[in-house]
Design a protein around this nucleic acid. Sequence first.
DNA 1: TGATTGACTAAGCGCTTGCTTACCATGGCT
DNA 2: AGCCATGGTAAGCAAGCGCTTAGTCAATCA
Lengths: 198, 198
Amino acid sequence: MSSDPEPLPDARTRLASAALDAFAAKGFHGTTTRDIAAAAGMSPAALYVHHPSKEALLHELALVGHAQVLALVEEAAVSVPESDPVGQLARVVEDFVRHHARAHLGARVVNYELSALTEDHLAEIQAIRHGIDVVVRGIIERGVAAGVLHTPDPHMTTLAMLSLGIDVARWYREEGAWSPDDVAVHYRGLALRMVGAA
Amino acid sequence: MSSDPEPLPDARTRLASAALDAFAAKGFHGTTTRDIAAAAGMSPAALYVHHPSKEALLHELALVGHAQVLALVEEAAVSVPESDPVGQLARVVEDFVRHHARAHLGARVVNYELSALTEDHLAEIQAIRHGIDVVVRGIIERGVAAGVLHTPDPHMTTLAMLSLGIDVARWYREEGAWSPDDVAVHYRGLALRMVGAA
DNA sequence: TGATTGACTAAGCGCTTGCTTACCATGGCT
DNA sequence: AGCCATGGTAAGCAAGCGCTTAGTCAATCA
């Protein structure tokens, strides 16, 4: 008897990461259960020992991925005092962008395959996305109120800032010249200038 | 006998726009030839009278869509004198963003379904994308040389600027509070501040 | 007028899909 | 020893896939 209430055996993880790679490369509908099973070194039927359906696998990936990003954003925000919105924003953007470069395959699935989810599962994910938006918008709005950030529309600027980070997952390549840190640092500068805080 | 060397009958256009809507909503692999034909009001076989394959349909949409964007960017660039890189950049970003909001369904297909193309067709599209990048990077590099734009890495900044516009196609909704013009104008401001030109 | 052409459809072919069934091997518990 | 839970497989089912075939029909042309 393990102390883990929900044991995550190796095969389950292997299936999930095989699915992540395949979904990122060919999309949810372009990936077959046979692709996933083969990449995890199992027969197609083994997938159903661990996950009830292909969609459930996507849902789990999306849920974990979004939860990670929300946690990352919240941690970045509280790691800098609330009295320093510029510092908070710098930290959030840097960490957000670094994550989307470093984990670009996962981030791709998480951001571009949502339309394959069931209505219920999609709604669950949207709620987490809203949470991320709230944290970032809060920082920007407090910065504007304090006179250290400047934008005519904090709502749209928040969207643009997150958008900039998310899209890194689309274009980032490991073989390229830039490390995740390179991109994160550069984007932090862009973001700060966008709100007149550089 | 028409003067048109290649007559584009109505049905062909209807199929293309039905495909565009379907690909944008459910992705290339999530869309069936029966979906497309039904939306165009025809039998599945009629699709093959006008297009040799489902992939060829995607290729045509991608080609036309990319050509439009390249033309739009080039026209925006030459509509402002070369001696004014700030004005050129403002105009390019504004037009680029407006297009990605206004034609967000088409832009979605054009940017997010490329992996479903054959190798040859993809290479053709990448060449056009490179052309777009060259125009925008040229403006930024000349602006930096002239001392009116500022960025430590014109290459990455160009990428970020295009990325910002492209991602509009992912999140833009007609039902939202913002018109394509609203987004275009706001993003123009963000872009100029990103390169210290506001 | 009769032949030809071009757009279209009903039917369906061969294959692949997501998922299920029936079964098997192993290892820990009583 | 006997049992059964766990995690796996081989085989295959029903449905759906991209695409083809064979043929219809209206407009065009010699």
